[in-house]
Nucleic acid binder design. Structure first.
Length: 310
RNA sequence: CGCAGGGUAGUGUAACUGGCAAACAUGUCGGGUUCAUACCCCGAAGAUUGCGGGUUCAAAUCCCGUCCCUGCAA
């Protein structure tokens, strides 16, 4: 079975490598154009491109895959199926029906929940107990196609966006390798998504990481984990950005202090009053400084009880 | 050459209008107090101040170059 793979980040690269390693013939790899990265502004290849180059596969990086010339280019790659994972561009109807088996997507959630661009982070922020990966037959909507195969992955209390990304990448890679032969053999039963159960995980913006201290300590703690490593949960102190990398929610009653006030400075961290409960910060990073443990952070004695954040 | 902050004892910071033995916190080691401890007290070790060069009687501090780190923007 000939495959054209479409994807961009690590999540997709893991699946691509698994497909290649499993022995499938990948005739082409499509990913987003190289983008400037880091302070130097140098162009950098995405993980999928790097993987493709490593195996000497042809790479196609269209600005807009919907354009006629891009579609023509795409037709040059022989394929029985397009496998898509976090590609970052919407496919047109013409592309969706191009290969014999259509387009198969590896989505990082248990559909119909968390359709959209950032399912991994949002399900942590929402406090879900479990998530997973879904392999679906793509249709014109955004993550609305029929479900073919799924795999569940539990979300731990320590889970971060980054760690869950890794887990789902591996789960997705394993599942697609198991699914491909079944798809070729017609050994599966498409299942319609229950629209009533669906919700949408919109793309993350930088501002989604800003901490609202009126929220509960639990909610903020989940935000800290979900936004790690990007865009990261942050607040402000003395006009400078302060990122919170790790924290724990304490059930302690909040006196009558305003949310965002530092209520205590201890051995392992410092406590901040929330709308309900207290957030104990264990790892933080001041603008321009390195990420460090709260112990190190406190040694510089920048903070004082009563100071306000936000 | 996108904007900006920073590189000082193991770690985090101070001093940076040039000149007291480079300060503080924490950590480490030794000792003491205690039934005991993450508490407390006393003491010690630990820094050629990123690297190279320059100005000067004198530089962490000023100038030039270079390497690295970080936030923002992309």
């Amino acid at each position: 079975m000939k495959i054209v793979f479409m994807g961009t980040p690590d999540y997709a690269a893991t699946a691509l490598e698994a497909i290649i390693t499993a022995g499938y013939e990948v005739t082409g790899v499509v990913c987003q154009p190289d983008k400037p990265k880091g302070r130097s502004g140098a162009l950098a290849a995405c993980p999928v491109k790097e993987c493709a180059l490593k195996y000497g596969l042809p790479v196609f990086q269209p600005e807009r895959i919907k354009r006629a010339e891009a579609v023509e280019e795409l037709k040059k790659f022989p394929a029985d199926v397009f496998v898509v994972a976090a590609f970052g561009q919407i496919l047109s109807e013409e592309i969706l029906t191009m290969p014999k088996y259509g387009c198969i997507n590896i989505h990082a959630s248990l559909l119909p929940k968390y359709r959209g661009a950032a399912p991994i982070q949002w399900c942590i922020v929402d406090g879900e107990q479990e998530t997973g990966v879904t392999i679906m037959q793509m249709d014109a909507g955004i993550d609305t196609g029929d479900i073919l195969f799924t795999r569940t992955v539990p979300i731990t209390k320590e889970e971060t966006g980054g760690s869950l990304f890794d887990k789902l990448s591996r789960a997705g890679a394993e599942l697609i390798v198991e699914a491909l032969p079944k798809i070729e053999a017609g050994d599966f039963t498409p299942q319609k998504q229950d629209e009533a159960q669906s919700n949408y995980a919109r793309m993350l913006k930088k501002e989604d990481g800003e901490i609202v201290w009126h929220s509960t300590a639990e909610e903020i703690e989940r935000l800290v984990r979900g936004m790690n490593p990007w865009p990261s949960a942050y607040t402000f102190y003395n006009g400078k950005q302060l990122k919170i990398w790790k924290a724990e929610a304490l059930a302690e009653s909040t006196n009558d202090l305003q949310p965002g006030t530092i209520s205590g400075i201890g051995k392992s961290g410092f406590d901040i009053v929330c709308g309900n409960g207290i957030l104990r910060v264990l790892e933080a990073q001041m603008e321009g400084k390195k990420r460090m443990s709260a112990v190190d952070f406190l040694n510089g004695r920048v903070l004082a009880v009563g100071d306000r954040l936000g």
